[in-house]
Design a protein around this nucleic acid. Structure first.
Lengths: 251, 251
DNA sequence: GTCAACACTTTGTCCTGACATAGCTGCAAT
DNA sequence: ATTGCAGCTATGTCAGGACAAAGTGTTGAC
């Protein structure tokens, strides 16, 4: 008898064996699509792997790999002996490491950047240490003022090793730093951030068009690419009244 | 001829086939150990998978799975046609979702908690929405004051659904909330956090033994377990002069 | 000397087959 | 009625083989 959670049927799944897209990925994408469209209900159980492999005419390892992929992204949970279930859609993987520029663009605001300084040279000690650079290494050091919809939002100091990316003023005015890094093949994959708060000095207040003593959100970050190469150091200050950090963390 | 990066020899690796620990995991652990102890140099190349499988007398899928595991944790990088390399140790996996209590304990401080209120009832609207709860759901609502080395550090408001965990005063005084959740089998696996800053009101300043206008770090968070069940909502306030958030993010 | 074609190395994908083990369910013995 | 055992179901682990495709380096033609 069947009085447990409903078992999804996984309707018509078409696979293209001549496609360069791997089979396991085709299966995973199709499954995710079915889940997100609501055809397969949240909390419902998947068919077991053997049946699924049978019906889709692929081997069990291929099915397992597809399911594995979705488990890692938090879409499915497996329990040995019990089956595979669809997880509540609220729990999804953090999308990607984002920068302020990305965040603003995504939320529909129009960011605008003023480059206050940009020069190449040996990094300060704490920067060199954060990036793990040697004695003779050089970085591009920049100070930027970031506006959203015309209002000043953040003072940003950044360092990028010159052999990672030669930064140019005109690029930075039109694009975010992370976008430039990605385009150069040094997409940040991991970052360490320290977030704190303090009140504005009068110099900072003047730049940010705010008052002395206004609350500020501070963030310092070091980012690495997939190869473990340090690609960016940043020390940012945000007007707390106009910006807050949104983060998704996962184990 | 061999004038590329040195190829690690992977010295004497002993596997126990009678152990309940899976072979691929034994291999992965051993490799990680060799890497972290410095026997296999950072940046160095691994033997290719076929040779490795041969020498360790396991199949290639097993080796692949072990390497895969370390790739996911950021210890290795693979490139088709090129080989597998050891990544700089700075780039490692975020350990686990931690709470303030965990953080303090780990950094050698002695946390101490004062429970100011604890009652069960229907959640406020914004809390119910954050947790995705229905009309008739009940939560335990707590307000705590957290001290480190005798000094007040944070005001913490939390809500936990009663059917997840019945919270008791005496437990909370001695343990962190996350520790209790983990013990009950609802280990947080994913969380959404919003971090901001503002200045203290006089009431907050009094509680935190600080002055009005002192900078505060604010954090609101919703956490889910592996099954996608919302297990905790929190709204915390930290003294910025005594605490900052440290985060590791990854793609 | 430069550049394109080629061979070689190495990881990526996919298959078949087998056995182990955790979780569940129902039946039987107590 | 409760406990414990047996059997079923489903995922977990592992082997061995085959071919595809990307990256690297070498060779040869111009």
């Amino acid at each position: 008898m069947e009085h447990s959670t409903p078992r999804g049927p996984v309707p018509e799944v078409a696979l293209d064996r001549s496609s360069p897209v791997p089979l396991y990925f085709q299966v995973a994408s199709r499954l995710q699509q079915l889940i997100e469209s609501g055809v397969m209900p949240v909390g419902g159980r998947l068919e077991n792997e053997v049946e699924l492999a049978d019906r889709l005419a692929v081997s069990r390892p291929t099915i397992r790999r597809a399911v594995q992929y979705l488990v890692e992204r938090g879409v499915l949970v497996r329990k040995r002996g019990a089956g595979t279930q669809i997880v509540h859609p609220k729990v999804r993987r953090p999308v990607e490491l984002s920068s302020l520029y990305d965040d603003l663009t995504k939320s529909g605001q129009k960011p605008h950047t003023e480059i206050r300084t940009l020069h190449v040279g040996a990094p300060a000690d704490h920067v060199a240490e954060a990036l793990g650079l040697g004695e003779d290494a050089e970085v591009t050091w920049i100070e930027r003022l970031r506006f959203a919809d015309g209002e000043p939002l953040a003072i940003m100091h950044n360092a990028v090793p010159v052999d990672v990316l030669p930064l140019r003023r005109e690029d930075l005015e039109e694009r975010g730093l992370y976008e430039l890094l990605r385009a150069a093949g040094y997409a940040p994959r991991m970052a360490n951030q320290v977030v704190g708060a303090r009140v504005a000095t009068s110099a900072e207040a003047r730049l940010l068009d705010d008052v002395r003593g206004a609350p500020l959100l501070t963030m310092t970050r070091t980012a690495w690419d997939a190869g473990g190469r340090a690609v960016e150091y940043g020390s940012h200050i945000y007007r707390a009244s106009r910006y807050s950090l949104e983060l998704t963390l996962s184990t």
